[in-house]
Design a protein around this nucleic acid. Sequence first.
DNA 1: ATTTAAGCGAGACGGTACGTCGTGTCTTTAT
DNA 2: ATAAAGACACGACGTACCGTCTCGCTTAAAT
Lengths: 214, 214, 214, 214
Amino acid sequence: MSSTPQSPRAARAPRAKVPDTTRRSARSRAAILDASMELVGEVGYSRLTIEAIAARAGVGKQTIYRWWPSKAAVLLDALTAVVDDDGYAAALPDTGDLAADLKEVLRATVDEFTDAAFEAPYRALAIASAADAQLAAQFNERLQEPGLAVYAARLRAAQRAGQIDADLDVGLAVEMLLGPFQQRWLARSGPLTYEFTDRLVEMCLRAFTPRGTP
Amino acid sequence: MSSTPQSPRAARAPRAKVPDTTRRSARSRAAILDASMELVGEVGYSRLTIEAIAARAGVGKQTIYRWWPSKAAVLLDALTAVVDDDGYAAALPDTGDLAADLKEVLRATVDEFTDAAFEAPYRALAIASAADAQLAAQFNERLQEPGLAVYAARLRAAQRAGQIDADLDVGLAVEMLLGPFQQRWLARSGPLTYEFTDRLVEMCLRAFTPRGTP
Amino acid sequence: MSSTPQSPRAARAPRAKVPDTTRRSARSRAAILDASMELVGEVGYSRLTIEAIAARAGVGKQTIYRWWPSKAAVLLDALTAVVDDDGYAAALPDTGDLAADLKEVLRATVDEFTDAAFEAPYRALAIASAADAQLAAQFNERLQEPGLAVYAARLRAAQRAGQIDADLDVGLAVEMLLGPFQQRWLARSGPLTYEFTDRLVEMCLRAFTPRGTP
Amino acid sequence: MSSTPQSPRAARAPRAKVPDTTRRSARSRAAILDASMELVGEVGYSRLTIEAIAARAGVGKQTIYRWWPSKAAVLLDALTAVVDDDGYAAALPDTGDLAADLKEVLRATVDEFTDAAFEAPYRALAIASAADAQLAAQFNERLQEPGLAVYAARLRAAQRAGQIDADLDVGLAVEMLLGPFQQRWLARSGPLTYEFTDRLVEMCLRAFTPRGTP
DNA sequence: ATTTAAGCGAGACGGTACGTCGTGTCTTTAT
DNA sequence: ATAAAGACACGACGTACCGTCTCGCTTAAAT
């Protein structure tokens, strides 16, 4: 991805493949990211083309090929930029009521995945990741895992508060909370409703909490 | 003389464009399905082309376009044929030990999704479904839901045996068992191991079983 | 061409390629010829297709392929039928005034070649003949030469009347009268006007008549 | 950002779609013209395909479609290039003997039209011109008329020398000399022999020369 | 008076070529 | 050296026809 930091010196290697980042046009970069977000919303991932991005961005094709290896990589940068700008919720709320907190956040996530402007590029990246392991690694690292981490943090807080099992595998717990949700979304195997997420939270908490608890 | 005379029979065909299924070549159909399965395994979905399928099958391209709307639709038929031939496990084993039964089947599923011959077309369809709602409906109905149904049946048997809550939402329960699995697989967010599925089953059963149970 | 007479017995040859003429459907034949004449006028020769002829004629494609080797052969039969029906002018007028007679007939020919209904199939055949020597032989024999023959007859009458050289090569003379005309028409190298044909006749007659004549 | 900035220069190009001629690859152009000449000789016009030209030339199909509207247009450029390179006979010989000069040139033309390397593309263009008025205009202007002009020049010289009528319509005269020839060639209505052209010249000269001359 | 067996309408089939679109590379011209 | 522009070789697209090949079906001839 283009985010790999490149010192100017790196370009001095005998046959430099990587262009000189310091000379990069910020204006072009922004135009490309904007155009790709717009277009993926308009036509969908499969009909998204690099030519169209370049044309919409008023940019030469080579400028895209120089800095990104694929249209998915462009989208990854574009969505990362948006998410980082919007200031990723660094933490889940912690009202002390774990169930309420999880339900609230999952309801917000339902809203997010119902918003076409966000959904389109996110789905595009999920699709591209499913097809390309290398992209998947980047996608998971840069967009998915930060999201999961805040769930994990909240669960660990609940562990410390004794609300859930101390020896609970937090990673697995997060997968149980989000896996069914993402599956419904990506495979369109069911509607994304508050009722679904609420009941999913309730069911999961039954698994997370000590058996004796009523 | 040039006016097309319409026999009553011809007039009964209300919609034009639809080819005559009775004249369809079974040989060609089989060759196309075989070729598409082979090729998706060899080159992956994104490099799978209808031209290559036609060439491999020894068939004209039009014969594919006549009967299928997309390469994904071909794969859906191909995989459906394979699954139906192999005799879908109509039911999960029922040894009385729900945890053991679920673990066994999920372990088998791990094996299945580790087998490239099965994985490639299945992933291809999952990708295509993520990109195309219409295909997704077909994919879910014809391949996913039959698979889920056997889990649901086993859970309902366990309900009758009093092993899990009588008022458990079986559909949701199945999503909890398979969602995290499929998510790991499709998004490559983690390894598909027996350990993972075993622990997933254990966690889920804690959610499914009556709270009082130790 | 389909005009080759075939006795029923010929079909008894070990591997009969030639279908049984006696069973041929006159209705289909007529519909095909009509349709081909219509279509060549509507879309031109290069866009004329056998499928379209069959569809317009309400006939199976095989019925065309059974009886004709090419779409040009169909047109040749079609135009022959029309020309024969219209009763080919068996002879040029002979008023005694050769120049006037030739001018009149050439003016009529100008009219004919300006009529789209006649021009389109005729041009189609001329084009097909230019590309296919075998068709050319048929076209010349069945459509061109009968036309030329009437000119030759008229010139021979003029020879007998002493109006043109007795040792004139009548065949060449006919070519001189019609070659420039057909060339203009086919190559579109100039307009087909009465003035052109009148002056062509006058020039040719200077070549045909005895030198002493003023 | 996505609005396409238009430099004044770019705005001066009134019509879109037209590719930039200055960037055209001379190498590709030459390869395409060569390949089309070769192929039309090998397989004939009707079996000449743009795909085959592109393949033989080592060129993408789009490079042909970008610069030429049809395979006939390619051939027109190809033949024009050959003819211009070979240095079109700028003038007929003028030995003072008009008959001899015309016979000599027509005999040379017979040779030319008997040479397959020249005949094939020329016939191809004649066929395409017969089918397409727009191409015909180009063909006549760029290949036919320059050829006719040299005949016209020679006839005008003869006029000045008093050998043929001063008021002879030179254009018509040229059509009389070449029309029967081209007709025989294109329609294959007779053999192209020296005897034919010699007698054609003699006949025409009888029409061109003053009546009193023996 | 049936039985053949042909022609027939219909259209699926294996192919070829079409003309278009997008890819990723390369070259030109202009900052 | 990067950028806009876009020509290029390539490959796949989805379509249109080709000419062949079954399918019932009518229909005329030969049983």
